[in-house]
Design a protein around this nucleic acid. Structure first.
Lengths: 337, 337
DNA sequence: GGCGGTTACTTTTGCGCATAAGTTGTACGC
DNA sequence: GCGTACAACTTATGCGCAAAAGTAACCGCC
C-alpha cells in the first residue's frame, strides 16, 4: 500500500502538499501541482490508511449496528427475514454516505460497549434492545444513538427512536376485521411492552370505538422458546373456538399459528380468520395468502441510518419518527354476519 | 478514553512497562509492578485504541464479509433467510476469536476492494460471488480468502471454498423420489453453474443409476427478476402435467412454485410432487410441509469463519470443504405406482 | 575484581496521516 | 526601495501504540 510520504517523495514535494490536494484545500495548492498530484494518485490507486487517519482525527467513520439476539424458537432474532432486510437498508445508506458499518450480534450490552469504545465508533444504531438496554448504553456512550422499535417516553430522553405508527396500523386492521363482522377478536403476542404494547393499545382503541369491551382473556400469550412454543400453540388452538379472528403481532407468528391450526384440522379462514403484521415473504407465499399490516422494513433501516447521519453532521432531528403502515387485504379473513 | 501514556504518568512508570503488562510479556515485569498495573487498568476500564494498535502493527483484526447483492424478485439476496443465518454464524465465530466483522453488501467488486484496502482487512469471506469475481478479488488481495458456495476447479487455485456435498444431497433426493415411483422428474433452477451445476449433476447421476434417460427439456428455467418471474412461473405451471415431480434448487423456489400451482388449482402433492433444498422456515411452516434437503446454514458460516481463522493463524486447511446434507421427508411428495 | 548474564526497567523510534507553524518568493502600494 | 500581504509551499509535531534499542543494578563465577 502506497503512502502519502512515498507519493511525496516520488513527486519531489512535501507530504503536506499531497495531503492538501487529497482534502481539496483550495487556494493552498497551485493548479499545476494539484493536477500533477491528482493524476499520480489515480495512477497508483491511492487509498488512505484509515487507521492513521482516524488516529490523527480522533474519529472512526464507523457506525455500529447492534442487534440483540434472542434465544427463541428460531434460535435467534437474526433468522427472521425482517432482520436481514433491515441490515441491508442500513448498510446501503451508510456506505453511500462514506461511512462503514460494523455489525454486532450480542445480547451482552457490556460486550457491545467494549467493542464500541475499542473502535471509537462514531454513532450507534440499536435494534432488538429493550428500553433499559438502550438507556444503559446511552449513559456510557456519549455519541449519537438511534434505536429502532425501542420506544418509551423514558427512552426518548436518551436516544432517537425510529419506528412505526404501530398503534394506528393495528387500529386499522382491527377496524377492518370489525367491518367484516368480527367481534370476538383475540390479540396474540409474546409480551406487553414496547412495540407490542403500542399495538395492543391500537387494538383496544379500535374495540372501544366499535363499542366492544376489551377482555384481558383475549390476550393470547405465545412463548417463543423452543421448549415452550408447541405447548403454547396447543393451548391457543384449543381456545380457537372462542374467537372468530386472531390478530398476531407478526407474520411469523401468524403463519406459525395457521400451520398449527391446519395440523389440527381447523381451517383458515373458514373456521377462523388470522391476520399478521409485517408483510414479509412468509405471508406472501402462504396459501391462503396472509392478510396483514404492511411495513417497509428497508425504509426503516434507511431512515434510522439517515437520521443518525444527520445527527453526525450536527443537524437536529426529531427524537421520534413514526413510519406509516397500510393494510394488505388477502385471503385469511372471512366475512361473517 | 484513557491512554497508556496517561496510565504510565499516573503510575509513575514508562509506557513500555504498561504495554508489557497488557501483552502479558512474562519475565519482563516484576510481579509487584504487574499487579499494580493490572489493578489500575481494571479500575479505569482501559480499552486500547485499536486504530493506534493497528497502525503500529500493520494489521486490522477485521474480517470482511462481502455479500454480492443480486437484483431479483426479492430485491436482493439479503432477503433470503439463508443469508441472515449465515451472517449470524460468521459473526459469532469471528467475535469469539477476538476479531471484528465488517459487512459489505455490494455487487461491485471494485468497491469491495477499495473498502478492504482502506481498512487493511486481515481476511475475507465471499458469498454470492460468481467464480470470476472471486478470482478477480484474489488477484488484488494477497491475504486469505474463503468463499462460500463458489466453487470450480479454477477458483480453488485461488481460494478455499466452503460448501455442501450438493451432488450427493441432490442424488439422495432424486433417488428418494424414484423410490416413491417417480420417473418424470424435472429440475428447476435459475442457472447451470456453480452450486446449481453440482446439483444438476447429482440429478443426472441419480437418473442414470436408475436407468432413466436425462432429457434437457426437463431442466426448468426460472427467471427470478421481478419483471420475469411471473411469466416463467406461468410457463412452468403450464408444463406441470409433463412431470410427476419437480426438484427445486431452493426452498424459496419450491414454495414459490407451490403457491403458483395452488393459484391455478393444481394440488401438491396430489397432482404433482415438489421438493426443495435448504430446509428453512419457509418450507417448515408451509402446509403441506415441504420435503427437502437439509443443510446447516449456520454451520456453513461457522465453518467458513473457522477456516479463515485457521489460515490467519498460519495453519494449513483443505481448499475444499464439503458439509453433509440429509433428507427431510415431509408432505409434498406422493407415492405413485 | 572484571566480565558475562539476567532482571527490570526507560528511552527512542516509527507506523501514516492531518495540521499548526514556519519559510520562501513575489507582487503591490506608497 | 521598503514594508506588507499573500500564494505556494516545507518543516515539525502529535495522535496512541508496539517494539527495538538502551541502561542500570545486581548476581555469580573463574
Amino acid at each position: 500500500m502506497i503512502t502519502i510520504k512515498e507519493i511525496a517523495r516520488q513527486l519531489n514535494m512535501s507530504t503536506t502538499t499531497v495531503s492538501n490536494v487529497i482534502h481539496g484545500k483550495a487556494g493552498e495548492v497551485s493548479d499545476d501541482t494539484k493536477k500533477k498530484v491528482e493524476e499520480f494518485l489515480k495512477k497508483v490507486d491511492y487509498v488512505p490508511n484509515i487507521n492513521a487517519r482516524n488516529l490523527a482525527q480522533n474519529e472512526s467513520k464507523i457506525i455500529g449496528l447492534a442487534l440483540k439476539a434472542r434465544a427463541d424458537k428460531y434460535e435467534n432474532l437474526i433468522m427472521d427475514p425482517f432482520v436481514s432486510v433491515l441490515i441491508g437498508g442500513v448498510e446501503e445508506t451508510i456506505r453511500n454516505a462514506g461511512y462503514f458499518m460494523m455489525l454486532y450480534i450480542s445480547s451482552d450490552t457490556d460486550e457491545i460497549m467494549r467493542h464500541v469504545s475499542t473502535w471509537n465508533v462514531d454513532g450507534l444504531i440499536l435494534f432488538g434492545m429493550l428500553n433499559d438496554d438502550g438507556i444503559r448504553v446511552s449513559e456510557k456512550y456519549k455519541k449519537p444513538i438511534v434505536c429502532i422499535d425501542t420506544y418509551s417516553l423514558e427512552g426518548l430522553k436518551h436516544f432517537t427512536n425510529v419506528g412505526l405508527d404501530d398503534e394506528q396500523g393495528t387500529y386499522d386492521m382491527i377496524k377492518y376485521l370489525i367491518s367484516q363482522g368480527h367481534k370476538k377478536i383475540a390479540f396474540l403476542s409474546d409480551n406487553q411492552s414496547g412495540v407490542d404494547l403500542a399495538r395492543l393499545n391500537g387494538y383496544k382503541k379500535a374495540l372501544k370505538d366499535a363499542g366492544i369491551k376489551y377482555k384481558s382473556s383475549n390476550f393470547l400469550q405465545i412463548h417463543p422458546k423452543s421448549d415452550e412454543i408447541d405447548e403454547s400453540l396447543a393451548e391457543i388452538c384449543d381456545r380457537s373456538k372462542e374467537f372468530t379472528a386472531i390478530f398476531c403481532v407478526s407474520d411469523l407468528y401468524a403463519v406459525t399459528l395457521i400451520s398449527a391450526l391446519t395440523d389440527r384440522g381447523i381451517n383458515v379462514p373458514e373456521e377462523i380468520s388470522i391476520v399478521g403484521f409485517d408483510d414479509n415473504m412468509l405471508g406472501q407465499l402462504h396459501r391462503p395468502a396472509l392478510t396483514t399490516v404492511h411495513q417497509d422494513v428497508k425504509a426503516k433501516g434507511i431512515t434510522a441510518a439517515d437520521t443518525l447521519l444527520k445527527q453526525l453532521a450536527g443537524h437536529k432531528t426529531p427524537n421520534q419518527i413514526k413510519l406509516p403502515t397500510h393494510l394488505v387485504i388477502r385471503d385469511t379473513v372471512r366475512k361473517i354476519n
